[in-house]
Each structure stands twice: as C-alpha cells, then as structure tokens.
Nucleic acid binder design. Structure first.
Lengths: 343, 343
DNA sequence: CATTAGCACTCGGTAACCAGGAGTGCTAAC
DNA sequence: GTTAGCACTCCTGGTTACCGAGTGCTAATG
C-alpha cells in the first residue's frame, strides 16, 4: 500500500512528466511548493516507488519517469479530471448548431476533438441499428444507367449508380421499387435483409414477371454491405509530439493507421463509459507507447459507436478524460433527440 | 552545348541517383558498362557539368548528385518514358469496370496511382461544368426536418438535411420543388444559379404565396457552394523515402498537406498535358525538395480537373510520366462516354 | 590533343576520449 | 524519521584521430 507521501510524489512526477516530457529529478520536486521534504527524502521514496514498479529510470542516474503501471495507478486513483468551460461550449455549439446529418456531426466532432487536444481522434461511426428506411428510389440517368437512392429517417442518404443489364425490364424494376417502398417503410435498416428474404420474397413473385434476375440485382444494388466507417481527426498531430522524434516510430505508426480494419477492431470492443488503455495494454504493436482513450455513445441504452483519442502514454489525462465524457454524452443526447423527432 | 558524352554521363548519374539515393562517384560510373572511359575522364566531365550547373556535390569531396537544373534537363531531353504493360491493364480495368460514379472513379484512381508509384497522389475533382440536373426532391423526415436531394445526369448525388422553419409552408415547398424540377431539368449545374435568379424567379411568384422566405431558404439548401474537392492517395507514402529521414522535414511537409486550399491552388493552374515541376520551381515552401507532376483530364476540349503525383525530386520520372499520361487520357475517355450516354 | 594513371588532398562518418553536469544511492549526522 | 554530504553513474557535447570514398590536378601516354 502506498503512503500519502508516496501518492503525492507519484502524482507530482506524473504531472510534471506529462507537461515537460523530461525525466523528473528529486531536486526539482523539492523545489516546488507541493512537497515539503528534502530532496534526499524524496529520493528514498522514489526508490521505493521504483521498486514497486510505478516509476522507471531511463538510465542508472537519471530522473524518474512514470512506468505504464505508474500511469495506470495515476489514471485510476490520482487524476482529477478537469473541464475547460470553453471546450464544453465549443462542443455544445457544434452539436446543436444546424447539423442535421449524422455524418457531419461525427466528422466535425472528430475534427474539433483533435484540434482541442492536439492528439489524433478516431470515431467509429454509428451502427445503423435504429435508423429506419424512409424511401427507396431509382432514377434513370440514361438508357442503361441508373442511380439508386436510399434515404433513412436520420437523413442519411446512400446512393449508388449502376448499369442496368439488358435482361432486366425497366417497368419490372419500377414495380418492384414501389412494392419495396410500400412494405419496407419504417423498417429498421438492420432488419432489411431478413425481411427481404422472407415476406417480400413471396409477395414479389406475384407481380413481377422475370422475378429472380431483377430481384437479385436490386438487392445487390440497394443492400450492399456498408462497412463500419471510421472518422479521423488530426491524423498528423502526433508527429508534433517529442516521443515521435524517432522517424522509424513514425513510420510504423502511420503504416498501422492506414490499416482501418485493425483500428476498427480496436474500437469495436469498447466497453461503456470512458476507458483508458495504456501502452502495452494495447494489443496492437505500433501503438505500444501510445495511450488510447475510448468512450461510447449510445441510444436507448444501446451502444452505437465509439469515440477514441490516441496520444502518447504521456497524455494529458486530466483534460482529456472529461472531454471525451462530455462529448460522448452530448452525442448520445443529439442522437436521442433525433430519435424522438424521426420516430 | 553539351557533348554526347556529357549527355550520357548526366543521364547515367541521374538514373543512378534516382535508384540509389546516393551520390554517384566517377569510379562507379566507369565500372558500369555504359560509359567506356576511365574514371579520370569522367571526373573531368563531371566537373564541367557541375560548372554548367547540372550537377552538385554534397560536400567538397563527395560524388555528384543532380541539381534541380540537372533534373530539369533530364526530364526535358534525356528521359525516355516507359510504360509497364501491367499498369496499363490495371488502370484500364479500374476505369471500365463497373464504376459508375465519378467520385468512386476518382478515388480509386488516386489510390491505385499511389500504390503503383509509392508516391502521394492528389486528384483535383472534376468541375461540374458539364453535369446537368436530373432531379431535385425533398423528402420529409419528421415534422420539422427534411432532406433535400439533388441528382445529376452523371449519377452524382448531393444531399443535405435541414430543419424546416415554422415560417415555411410545406405545400409551398412542394409546389416550388415541382416547378423547379419542371424548369430546371437538363440544365447544366453551373448555370443553375443564373437561371434561378432570372426566369424562375418571376414564375414562382405566381404560384407560391409566401414566396420570398421559402425561396431563399430553398436556394440555400439546394445550391450551397460546393468547393472543389481533393482526393488523396498514399498520404503517408513519402514517409518511406530516405529524403524524409529528417523528422522536421516530415513535420513541415505534413502540416502543408493539411492545407487543402493551398494544394488546390497548386493544382488548379495546371496546364494541359503532363507537366513536371521540380523542387524550387514549386511556389510552396514545404515541397521545395519535392517534384510535382500534373496532368489534366478533360471533356470536349474543356479541362475538368487535375491529377498530380507528389514525390521527392529524385522521382522515377521514367515510369511516372507515362503513367500519368495514360491515366489522364483514360479518365477523359470515361468522361466522354458518360457524356454521350447521359446527354 | 584527348585520354588516363597516379597522387595529394578534402571531408563525412565513426569511434575514442574527456570534462561538465544532473541526478542517484548510501552513509552518517541530526 | 529526516536530511546533509559525498562518491558514483551516465548522458551530453565538444575535441581529436583515423579511415575511406571521392575529388582535382599534374604528368605521362598513345
């Protein structure tokens, strides 16, 4: 168990290192007002803290830096999250102010987040669970090309152009779209596939002559897999951090950032609330000296997506934790309002 | 004027340096089969080439590297562009194969280009000159929100959600959209603004009661400025180049890449055909040791956009020039086909 | 006269060394 | 329990020495 004094010293060291990125020596701690002991006493405590694994030295006679365990303890017990009023305002404004498409909200959130923090932000787009079909349509562009448009109650628009094969009859297509609109209005997007394969299937046979070809085709056009989407902000922010002075670190980091799948997986498993993952706690090698902070946003208790912030382990946890917290609840709120409006 | 032998030596040096990124010494040239002179002779010629400004030394007793002027001469007179058959195939496939939206074509072009070359590709999206309005519509999502959708003959879909102010009457909005569709069908996008302000303006007054509010609003929703769009491929490719071993260079480079406006300006003035801009010939400071190669794609003699490739001055001009050339003509072709189909 | 062999010279890169300084660990005194 | 004092460690930056790749120049060569 750590004594009061040890806690204090640990905290001071972490805070100091987060600020300066330099190893912290006993003398510099003693000079600050916070700890009223001599440098020798502090040295002894630091040695103990090192034995317990909370601190490290970069070399045998250097000052101390926090170990990952030290950060862990700091985050779990010592940090007192702060909130800058200005940031709350900024976030609030973005969220409320005339943005009516989720894509936009998410993208601006990512950007604002990275701008405020100077880290890299990643947002895992909302799963489309609660969005419902508003309208399908097909607009013919020329003899053999058309564009299919799908609108959801959240104002999301999917579209896709395609060439219409000879085999498919234009009026069949139209009939089919009409039927689909009739039957699928208000159906949640994630249920579309099921519904199509059961109910609708039978119904269609009656009305449409060359049923199978058209139907398969239509399905391909409208309901193609849309993979989870990632939104980034400040991808190059981390370049400015001194821990990235090593060009090779930069290289491995950015080759990993390109692997969207890997990142999506990282964020996908996020648990509720704000969670901090430090250094090697991360599975992925390229961010083993980064910290990842995640928060989730939700709708009706149902998790919709993840907001994440990626920075050096020496991250300003103090500011960042609360920030993610407010942003995620703010997003959940906006989501909720929508849901009510567009039920 | 340069002698045959000088030309040969210059060429060998540039080729060699492009490949290895190392200063080229007289002895290593002599050892290659290409130049059958002793190293001393070659040294003399190199000294002359340096006097004329085509070569440089990194320090007083180093081998030579091409100066910017050397690259310029090389590009203008010495390089014999090659084409890898495989690449032509790849590009051709992408272009012809089931991509029916311009956005998609452009994005995949950018990606393929960067993957083939290992440089960073930038494409300036097509100006919408020749695209024409196919359909406007407004779909109501809830009492007070709607989504506006604009479809062009090229299959491009713009959409935007908005909240409907109290002041605006729903049926007025509908009437107006009907009228607009009637009158604006087939009108080139870039003429929409004009047309709206003249003809349509008067017409509308007759049918719609509270004309002005609704109209202004509609205009804002449908015809908001859409800025020129940039598509990137392989943003982080240049990290791998040895000239970016210097972390500060990396930093300044990537802060400049974020400035989309600046880049758009760079590409906007591009002249027809393939153009190579080397080092300080570029206006922008952060790419003063990069080369930028641009090509334009067009429709009916009218320039539509720019494809660009950004790499170190030590770029593989040989491969890259032809590549950009074929890609740009291929894009022009696809564009042309569309135009015919969707006239 | 163009070419080439030979040689002294230059300079970057690496390793070795040194002094200065920041910081530690330990001992002994308070 | 705390702290002053001191020897020790190791990083940092500057200096020196040396090696090797490459040059420039001169003199010899065909």
């Amino acid at each position: 168990m750590l004594t009061e004094r040890q806690l204090l010293i640990l905290q001071v060291i972490v805070d100091d290192f987060i600020e300066t990125a330099q190893p912290v020596g006993s003398r510099s701690i003693a000079k600050k007002g916070d700890v009223n002991y001599s440098s020798a006493t502090i040295r002894n405590e630091m040695a103990d803290l090192e034995d317990m694994g909370y601190l490290e030295k970069t070399h045998s006679s250097s000052g101390r830096i926090p170990s990952e365990r030290g950060y862990r303890y700091y985050v779990d017990h010592l940090v007192s999250p702060e909130q800058t009023a200005g940031n709350v305002q900024i976030i609030h404004n973005i969220m409320q102010d005339g943005l009516f498409e989720f894509e936009q909200i998410v993208q601006s959130s990512a950007e604002i987040l990275s701008r405020i923090t100077n880290y890299t932000s990643i947002i895992l787009g909302p799963e489309v669970f609660e969005t419902k079909l508003k309208q399908l349509q097909i607009i013919s562009l020329s003899e053999n090309t058309s564009v299919a448009i799908l609108v959801t109650n959240t104002g999301h628009v999917e579209h896709r152009s395609f060439s219409v094969p000879e085999a498919i009859n234009a009026s069949d297509l139209e009939k089919m779209v009409n039927i689909l609109n009739d039957r699928l209005y208000g159906v949640p997007i994630f249920k579309l596939h099921d519904k199509l394969n059961t109910e609708i299937m039978n119904l269609m046979n009656k009305y449409v002559t060359d049923f199978e070809t058209s139907y398969d085709y239509l399905k391909a056009v409208f309901f193609s897999e849309n993979p989870v989407k990632l939104y980034f902000g400040g991808k190059t922010n981390l370049l400015m951090q001194p821990e990235f002075n090593d060009i090779d670190k930069v290289r491995s980091f950015y080759s990993m950032i390109e692997e969207e799948d890997e990142i999506a997986n990282l964020l996908k498993g996020a648990s509720d609330g704000v969670k901090v993952t430090i250094g090697h706690e991360n599975k992925v090698d390229a961010i083993k000296d980064c910290s990842l902070i995640t928060a989730t946003y939700e709708l009706n208790e149902e998790q919709m997506g993840t907001i994440a912030l990626l920075g050096p382990t020496r991250m300003e946890y103090k500011k960042v934790i609360k920030l993610l917290d407010t942003l995620s609840t703010e997003m959940s709120e906006v989501l909720y309002k929508w849901y009510q409006d567009n039920e």
